[in-house]
Design a protein around this nucleic acid. Structure first.
Length: 509
RNA sequence: CGGGAUGUAGCUUAGUUGGUAAAGCGCCAGGCUGGGGGUCUGGAGACCCAGGGUUCGAGUCCCUGCAUCCCGACCA
């Protein structure tokens, strides 16, 4: 019985990640396009969970969704020097269409600032201070020809949303941009169970064209950092032509022609990779209950007696209905048939396939389903079922009466969500060093830790750090960081700190 | 884009000094089978990444390309 094994995390983390995603049924497949993956039913639902959390909250903040073209005229792109330098090297360009060469090439959007700005200027959307703020967002995908793709973490085409908003004042812009970052943090911490550090990106790590980039950063299980989301203060960049004339402007209360302030913000399907790298174990992926597409999978145990099996299946369906609080059960015909599902407050799936329990169990483990419930004829005779958690030892199985099951499930989901967050937080807090010299800093990064250090703010130091620690980078100044760096020495250069706060250093994805 | 590795059935792999391919898992049919991937019997399934070349003959040797993975550079 040659089992398909997953390389243990401790042995080789990148290989573990590869194995885990490869063995997760329905998660993804490779595609015929370089660097692109196909999101399977599971991967797609995970992205959908993220959308389902964010979209209504965007709306509650007053943001409207719009949809812009996938293609951007090259001339648009060339207007912004800093922007084009940042994105042109990784842009895909369409030169032919309709059977002939295009008079002007189109860039496949790597990000849509230029189209948003064009849109703002059309039909007199922004003429008065009364027209502001203008809050819009787009759900879609973008293409960036990255040199080194990794499934979910950095794919050539990836799914995201991009919010692009205009404000009358810089202060309003800043407040909103930070508010969005808080929403992203809430998504990560409350739904994905991933603790984040909110902060400012150092200037050399900013978005190409931003005045400030705010970030949320997380620590993966191997100690590497991953940027989970960003919001940018673009200020008046993109809104003023090279010749100084505004592309978008309005009359303020004092009848002065004024250029608004602009921000943009995004999280992407990379978060799926983040979730896997944060919570996965050596058995496969682990999905936090609130992010899971299916919280509970019920596994009927069938025996040789067909009539008995019918009774079991009926009990299983009743249980699914009572747990999910939704009466509709429908068959799922995706990659494999034989599944039924009910969607309510809790999504419950039934694995009614004619397969052995062990197979079904393993299937759910590899999919990271938070809870499994086993129910066979013997349980039915006792009016009970067995409830098992993906993240608890198998000895922790709970035998619960069918009527108590919905409550027990709810409790377990809630506890497991908290446990996953607590584990990740503990991992992070144990692994942030505060080295005072370069040797200790190197040792910390080598050991898979982050370091909180003073920084002299120079480019030379950035390069030295990177070169001598095989890839250490300056991640961010945490918003809640103490202002204790004045007078401290930069451990890399030995020069005094240029900032009031220390900065996080880590190797990153 | 540089360095390294790999590319044989759906998956993981075996293919000896070149002679048109093997196994386990999975899949299908049927038994026995209840709690982390059980077991027995029978069966379907690959022209060996692509394109050239050497050869009477290539999965096996040579060249080129492509893809994937690892390391690095790049990366909102």
């Amino acid at each position: 019985m040659a089992k398909q094994l997953i390389t243990p995390r401790a042995l080789n983390f990148p290989q573990w990640y590869q194995d885990v995603i490869a063995h997760a049924p329905d998660l993804y497949d490779e595609s015929p396009v370089t660097g692109c993956i196909t999101f399977g039913p599971l991967g797609t639902r995970l992205w959908q969970s993220i959308r389902d959390f964010l979209d209504p909250r965007f709306r509650a903040m007053g943001v409207e969704n719009i949809l812009l073209p996938t293609l951007i005229p090259e001339s648009f792109f060339l207007r912004e020097k800093e922007h084009v330098e940042g994105f042109a090297p990784e842009a895909a360009v369409v030169t032919h269409a309709g059977g002939s060469k295009l008079p002007e090439p189109y860039y496949v959007r790597p990000t849509s600032e230029l189209l948003f700005v064009d849109w703002y200027g059309r039909s007199g959307k922004v003429q008065s201070y009364r027209d502001l703020p203008l809050l819009v967002n787009q759900w879609g995908s973008v293409v960036r020809w990255e040199k080194r793709p990794r499934a979910f973490l950095r794919t050539t085409e990836f799914y995201w949303h991009e919010g692009h908003c205009l404000f009358a004042t810089k202060e309003q812009c800043r407040t909103f941009t930070l508010g969005i970052l808080d929403l992203f943090a809430e998504l990560c911490e409350e739904v994905l169970a991933i603790p984040v550090i909110r902060g400012d990106k150092p200037s050399h790590e900013k978005f190409a064209g931003a005045d400030n980039t705010f970030t949320i950063e997380s620590m993966m299980q191997d100690g590497k950092a991953l940027q989970m989301g960003t919001s940018h203060m673009l200020s008046q960049n993109f809104l003023i032509d090279a010749d100084g004339s505004p592309r978008v402007s309005f009359l303020n209360e004092k009848e002065e022609r004024t250029v608004p302030y602009y921000d943009s913000w995004a999280v992407s399907s990379r978060l799926i990779g983040a979730m896997i790298m944060t919570h996965g174990d050596d058995d496969g992926i682990v999905i936090p209950p609130k992010a899971a597409a299916v919280q509970v999978c019920i596994l009927p145990i069938f025996g040789p007696d067909a009539a008995e099996n019918e009774k079991v299946l009926k009990a299983v369906r009743d249980l699914a209905v009572s747990i999910s609080k939704s009466k509709t059960i429908y068959a799922v015909h995706g990659r494999a048939n034989g599944f039924e599902e009910t969607a309510g407050e809790i999504t419950v799936r039934i694995d009614a396939r004619d397969a052995r329990l062990g197979d079904k169990t393993f299937h759910q483990i590899r999919m990271g389903t938070p809870i499994r419930i086993e129910l066979g004829a013997r349980d039915l005779a006792e009016n009970s079922c067995m409830i098992k958690s993906r993240i608890r030892s198998r000895d922790d199985a709970q035998k619960v009466s069918l009527s108590d099951a919905p409550k027990a499930v709810e409790k377990m989901l809630d506890e497991d969500q908290k446990t996953l967050f607590a584990r990740a937080l503990e991992k992070r807090s144990k692994n942030i060093a505060e080295p005072e010299n370069f040797a200790d800093l190197k040792a910390a990064l080598e050991a898979g830790q982050w370091a909180l250090v003073a920084w002299d703010g120079t480019k030379e130091t950035v390069e030295k750090l990177k070169a001598e620690t095989s890839g250490g980078t300056y991640r961010c100044f945490a918003f809640d960081g103490k202002e204790d760096a004045n007078g401290m020495m930069d451990p890399v250069s030995g020069k005094p700190s240029a900032f009031a706060k220390r900065i996080y250093v880590a190797k990153a994805y």
